[in-house]
């Protein structure tokens, strides 16, 4: 077991992390918004954590809080990314389709150039020597952070989908104008979906900074946006399991292809092409096609009191 974790622990945690990033893009997509901004918020979240955990300015806090510093970094990252999401989202979400995607690409490129040049983000070198969360000895232990976050996110997503807000998201995805005419305010929900994604990506970033030990401008790039988009589309964009499966598989593929040595990145590109050609509904979509959801059952209009067999109470 120890051997297995030693060898694959890092990969497994990375797979979970990829699934989470996939989910961060999945929320805006639920409301029909193709945002490629996730890596930007991921990078910001990571920087927030890295700065809080290494910058001398916060040494006092670290001494006072001890391990409590880590949850604080999550909170701070979530908050800052939420606010940043709001600031970017309100103007950007007036755009549709590919225009929004391009605006979010502009957003991450601007963030990248800024982080390359600020001293607080360590410039081109970035921030290094980020302490391990809760004194973890091994990388696989980060599963205790990412695992619960994944479970909570999936529960959140499932509950959301069944709720009034989830319906509003879907209505906007299907037909924004009709949704508006039927009383669903599109801007409100588009921004909400965008901010949910931003907060999640920021949280993942804040947990990843100690995990990766260093943080720099390479963390939030355009390549990462498309990789994350691939997680969602190839996993399946209509089901919460899609981004998780896609993120895990696409992260594992290059590792599994290690025996191909230098060819593996070429093959990895081919996998993306072939998957987008042959799995247009995504992996989960292709599997789910076999199993249709049950038709909705009509609830009894008058509450019927069902008596247990044998009666009595």
């Amino acid at each position: 077991m120890g051997d297995f974790l030693g060898q694959y622990g890092f990969l497994i945690v990375t797979m979970v992390q990829a699934g989470l990033l996939g989910l961060s893009l999945y929320f805006p997509l639920q409301a029909g918004q193709l945002s490629l901004a996730s890596p930007g918020f991921y990078a910001v979240g990571g920087y927030v954590a890295a700065i809080l955990l290494t910058n001398p300015a916060f040494a006092g806090w670290r001494d006072a809080l001890g391990n409590g510093m880590f949850p604080l970094t999550w909170l701070a990252a979530a908050l800052i990314c939420g606010v940043l999401g709001l600031i970017v989202g309100v103007p950007a979400l007036r755009l549709r389709g590919i225009y929004l995607a391009l605006a979010t690409i502009a957003f991450i490129e601007i963030l990248r150039v800024i982080s390359l040049n600020l001293s607080i983000t360590g410039g081109a070198i970035g921030i290094f020597g980020i302490p391990q969360a809760f004194g973890f000895q091994d990388r696989w232990q980060y599963i205790w952070l990412f695992g619960p976050l994944l479970i909570l996110t999936l529960l959140f997503a499932r509950q959301l989908e069944r709720s009034r807000v989830g319906r509003a998201f879907r209505a906007i995805r299907e037909d924004e104008l009709a949704a508006d005419a039927m009383g669903v305010p599109p801007t409100h929900y588009k921004v909400l979906a965008f901010v949910i994604g931003a907060v999640l990506a920021g949280l993942v970033g804040a947990m990843s900074a100690p995990f990766l030990n260093t943080w720099n401008a390479k963390q939030g790039t355009f390549d990462a946006s498309i990789a994350i988009l691939a997680f969602v589309l190839i996993g399946g964009s209509r089901n919460i399991w899609g981004p998780v499966v896609g993120g895990a598989l696409l992260t594992a593929v290059p590792e599994l292809l290690r025996f191909l040595a230098d060819w593996r990145l070429v093959i990895n590109g081919l996998v993306l092409v072939v998957a987008s050609l042959y799995l247009p509904q995504g992996i989960v979509g292709a599997l789910g096609g076999v199993r249709r959801p049950p038709p909705p059952r009509r609830p009894p209009s008058v509450p019927v009191v069902v008596e247990a067999p044998g009666g009595g109470s």
Partner: peptide, 11 residues
């Protein structure tokens, strides 16, 4: 198409 063209670019 975004994903497949990026796949091509990677290749």
């Amino acid at each position: 198409a975004l994903v497949s063209s990026l796949g091509v670019a990677l290749v």
